[in-house]
């Protein structure tokens, strides 16, 4: 295992997980490395491993601590992490999501960005996004990069309830809320597409590594 001041670094995430940090900042290339490592860890098919979760720049490996120790799992994971060379997301999909641009924050986003509502819609729907990370709640995918002119900080007071299917922006990212949850992003539209369905395989529409386009509908 490498010392912690050198990346990638492996530390404990509680008694039943380890966390591999690949970088301190978000980038697409780092995400590709993280997902490649996740795939290689899964392919080892270690019996003690229960979940493998890639994030922006980190990878968590959850394990049954009655069947394996942190030290031995960390050694196996370190071998894999050090073996990654230029893997790509070869099973990524292109997903089109129809959007009605009717969100309650659309006008405010236009005002705060100095754009017209039409320009906001045009700039949001004309880009091709990539899913950097899945998580937070089932089916949520963090999509980037947003057009620079649309970048706004999160709302200062998050909403207690954001309806499922809300299309939202915050920072350099955009996303669809798959479920009704609290949320602090700016709601600019809605989609009727189901982002998470436990009866589907896979249950989520968008996975990390996928490519997403929003298509404006009336």
């Amino acid at each position: 295992m490498r010392p912690t001041n050198e990346l990638p670094a492996i530390v404990r995430l509680g008694d039943d997980a380890l966390l591999v940090t690949f970088a301190q900042a978000i980038s697409w290339d780092v995400g590709v490395r993280v997902r490649s490592a996740a795939r290689l860890v899964r392919e080892m098919r270690l019996e003690s491993v229960t979940d493998v979760v890639p994030a922006y720049a980190t990878l968590a490996v959850y394990f049954d601590s009655s069947r394996d120790s942190f030290e031995s799992l960390a050694a196996s994971v370190a071998n894999v992490v050090n073996a990654i060379e230029g893997h790509i997301d070869d099973d990524s999909a292109l997903i089109e999501i129809p959007v009605r641009y009717n969100g309650p924050d659309l006008v405010e986003v236009a005002e705060r960005t100095g754009l017209t509502v039409e320009e906001v819609i045009q700039r949001h729907s004309s880009r091709t996004y990539r899913a950097y990370m899945s998580g937070f709640v089932p089916g949520f995918a963090y999509l980037g990069d947003l057009d620079q002119s649309l970048i706004l900080p999160r709302r200062t007071v998050p909403r207690v309830r954001v309806p499922a299917g809300s299309v939202a922006i915050a920072g350099e990212q955009t996303a669809v809320y798959p479920l009704e949850t609290p949320g602090g992003w700016h709601l600019i539209g809605t989609t009727s597409v189901t982002m998470f369905d436990a009866k589907r395989d896979p249950p989520v529409l968008v996975r990390a590594g996928d490519t997403v386009r929003f298509v404006k509908i009336d």
């Binding site: 995430l13 509680g14 922006y56």
Partner: peptide, 12 residues
Amino acid sequence: ASLPSEPTCVGA
């Protein structure tokens, strides 16, 4: 502010 979101665990 600069910490990219990362996996959590129960008890974190």
